[in-house]
Design a protein around this nucleic acid. Structure first.
Length: 423
RNA sequence: GGAGAGGUGUCUGAGUGGUCGAAAGAGCACGCCUGGAAAGUGUGUAUACUUCAAAAGGGUAUCGAGGGUUCGAAUCCCUCCCUCUCCGCCA
């Protein structure tokens, strides 16, 4: 959520930035400013009447104490009109604030100045490409066939137990999952991210805090009896640890990492591109999250991007980094890098990580602040990234490392898997 | 699931109708003291909105949330939420 004061002070710039994000309702900006004007004047009127009423109440007390009952009674009789007015103004104010809030949550975050214009994924900017293109045998298989051939993942069994998109990992397939999780967590800790293990269900306030509500309600599984949402990403519980928190400036940046399963309904996305591990309803992910000083958040974003790239390099995967264009970015992000690995058997790029700076868009909702050099509270910046999401990493690893005789495990993972071949 | 207790500032904790944004202590910050530190001592120490060109200053709101009674509510009444304890069940 953008800050109203910022919108007021930078109207032109806000409109210009929203256009980069291809935002369709620029009139909202002026509507918001107008509502805020209205809010202010109503608030001022109400405060003035309240001040009068408060003063009178104090005076009544004083008169009673000094025994001037008649005067007190007289004063009492005059306060009725004020009460009525305060009530009316209060109702008006509530209505205005509600409408303002409703419009405010419709505005996406403003894209950073380096975000390219564009609408479709094709217009994303390729920042760099790295790693060798694997040479596969002519008999190379896509991962879902490899998974079946080596008995690593049973998609059908998952359908029986739960439904499509909930695979069962078996044997070395299951061990590979655990190995990757532990490897990613260890690497994140080495990079200074403190590990946390968080709840997989969150309440409404948390879902709202990171922006899943109100707009993306349909994406989350919902446990209605207890009013809890299954997390679509660890970002939600981890970032919400800092909801309503005022940090000291010297505590920044706060760096956390955590492993969780992630649950996404992915309503309406079916087809050839979502076969196998390409898109699941439940998947595993290690997330890195930072709360940063506004002056340094972009530096931190680069640091996070390099961390993710380091993982891909160590796993020996060919990857590329994209700077998302305005139209392809998420609602809450100011700048997003997507990392994609090259799936040699599917002959396509697969998104395995997304690293974003949300600036103060989330922290404004979360009321996540720090005390700045002047001793005043200021909104902190929040960032997060996948480091990494497992399924497409597994897909690429299986496909790119396949040989006639089996699948080679990358050296860095062998201490975790305790085996170096799947055969 | 049954029964009970309770939600006050960074924390502990007082406060049952006015002088309460709130005692006291702890913590923290700054100063004094000291060769330096501890102890001691002094001062300060919530958040948001608003007014003001800005600062200073002023106003309003907030003692779990919402509503009510009253000239006036942390304090009384109602509804909801949450936490804790005991019992039951249980990984």
């Amino acid at each position: 959520m953008l800050q109203v004061s910022y919108i007021r002070d930078n109207r032109e710039q806000v409109l210009e930035r929203l256009a980069v994000k291809n935002f369709k309702q620029p009139q909202l900006v002026d509507e918001i400013i107008k509502l805020d004007d209205n809010r202010r004047s109503t608030q001022t009127s109400m405060d003035n009447v309240s001040a009068q009423a408060n003063a009178a109440a104090k005076q009544v007390g004083e008169l009673m104490r000094t025994g001037k009952k008649a005067e007190a009674e007289e004063l009492k009789s005059t306060t009725g009109a004020w009460k009525e007015e305060i009530k009316n103004l209060g109702e008006q104010l509530n209505a205005i604030e509600e409408e303002l809030q409703q419009k405010l949550v419709l505005l996406p975050n403003l894209p950073h100045s380096t975000v390219p214009k564009g609408i479709t994924p094709e217009e994303n900017e390729i920042v760099l490409e790295n790693g060798a293109i694997p040479a596969l045998p002519a008999t190379a298989l896509p991962h879902w066939e490899l998974a079946a051939k080596y008995n690593l993942i049973d998609f059908e069994l998952g359908v029986k137990i739960t439904g499509a998109g909930f695979p069962v990992y078996k044997g070395k397939g299951a061990k590979l999952q655990r190995a990757l999780i532990n490897y990613f967590i260890d690497e994140a800790e080495k990079a200074g991210y403190g590990e946390v293990m968080v709840p997989l269900l969150v309440n409404e306030a948390s879902a709202y805090g990171t922006g899943q509500l109100p707009d993306k309600e349909g994406q989350m599984y919902f446990a209605g009896v207890d009013n809890l949402y299954l997390i679509p990403t660890a970002e939600v519980p981890i970032t919400n640890m800092y909801r309503d928190v005022i940090l000291k400036a010297e505590e920044l940046p706060v760096k956390n990492c955590g492993y969780t399963p992630c649950f996404r309904r992915e309503a309406g996305s079916y087809g050839a591109h979502v076969r196998g591990l390409n898109r699941l309803h439940q998947f595993d992910k290690v997330e890195i999250v930072q709360v940063a000083h506004p002056d340094r958040s972009y530096e931190m974003l680069e640091q996070m991007s390099l961390h993710v790239q380091g993982l891909l390099q160590k796993l020996g995967l060919r990857y590329r980094v994209l700077r998302l264009c305005g139209g392809d970015m998420s609602f809450a992000s100011a700048l997003t890098y997507d990392m994609e690995t090259w799936s040699a058997a599917q002959q396509r790029w697969l998104e395995v990580s997304s690293v974003s700076n949300f600036e103060s868009f989330q922290s404004n909702r979360l009321k996540l602040r720090f005390r700045n050099a002047e001793g005043k509270t200021q909104l902190a910046h929040t960032l997060n990234g996948s480091a990494l999401a497992l399924p497409r990493i597994v897909a690429t690893l299986l496909e790119n490392n396949q040989t006639e005789t089996g699948i080679k495990i990358p050296d860095v993972l062998v201490p975790y898997t305790k085996f170096d071949w799947i055969d």
